[in-house]
Design a protein around this nucleic acid. Structure first.
Length: 200
DNA sequence: AGCGGGATTAGC
DNA sequence: CTAATCCCGCTT
């Protein structure tokens, strides 16, 4: 789906099923304007969480205070604290009332980014994203401090898939190949990298 | 009010 | 391999 060059992705981009949007996030840029200035990275790894039936999704426990943003309109940020230590950044997809979301797991950092962006917790810490950004509108309609945009450059040459990480509790849903990544990227999250090396 | 657990990470 | 650390959701 087209977005103007250098422009924030429009609501319509997010207003589609999570499994459709997820591979299209690869190669796009996540940008945060914060106290440290503008920090950005190119998305190379994501995971789709498809809705209330998906036992790996927080939305499978229904509409609660934490998950309400997932059930809301697309194009907003869903950010939560995990293990009391790390933040995870998601984009909300699907139509209002449906609970699709996509976890951003790894970025290739822009040249001036101070720190690592391989891994969902690390990229939030390095870009300065935390729970105060939860529910923020990522589109140009809000013109907030956090957004996704398309930047000039070669397209992603190839998209690979694998099962999602760290959701073994989800039964049969754990096997679905709903992790999407750019194979060969140096910035993939650590756990899958170890797994890949271990298997090789 | 209390308790169990988590879409992770760093350090031994 | 495991501790860290806290919010949330569910039970009492």
């Amino acid at each position: 789906m087209a977005a103007g060059p250098g422009g924030r992705l429009p609501r319509a981009f997010y207003a589609r099923p999570a499994l459709t949007v997820a591979p299209e996030l690869l190669g796009l840029w996540l940008v945060h304007d914060g106290p440290a200035g503008r920090l950005a990275g190119r998305i190379v790894e994501v995971e789709a969480y498809v809705g209330v039936d998906d036992l790996a999704s927080h939305a499978s426990r229904g509409l609660t205070g934490r998950t309400s943003v997932m059930f809301g309109p697309p194009g907003h940020a869903y950010i939560y604290l995990i293990y009391g230590l790390h933040h995870c950044f998601n984009v909300v997809t699907d139509s209002d009332g449906e609970a699709g979301a996509i976890l951003v797991r790894a970025l290739e950092p822009a040249a001036d980014v101070p720190g690592r962006t391989d891994g969902p917790g690390r990229l939030c810490r390095t870009l300065g994203i935390d729970r105060t950004h939860n529910t923020l509108d990522l589109t140009a309609e809000a013109w907030g401090p956090l957004w996704l945009e398309r930047r000039p450059g070669p397209p992603v040459p190839e998209v690979a898939t694998s099962p999602r990480i760290g959701i073994d509790y989800a039964g049969e849903w754990a096997a679905r190949p709903w992790r999407f990544y750019v194979p060969g990227s140096r910035s993939l999250s650590a756990r899958p990298r170890r797994a890949a090396i271990g298997r090789a």
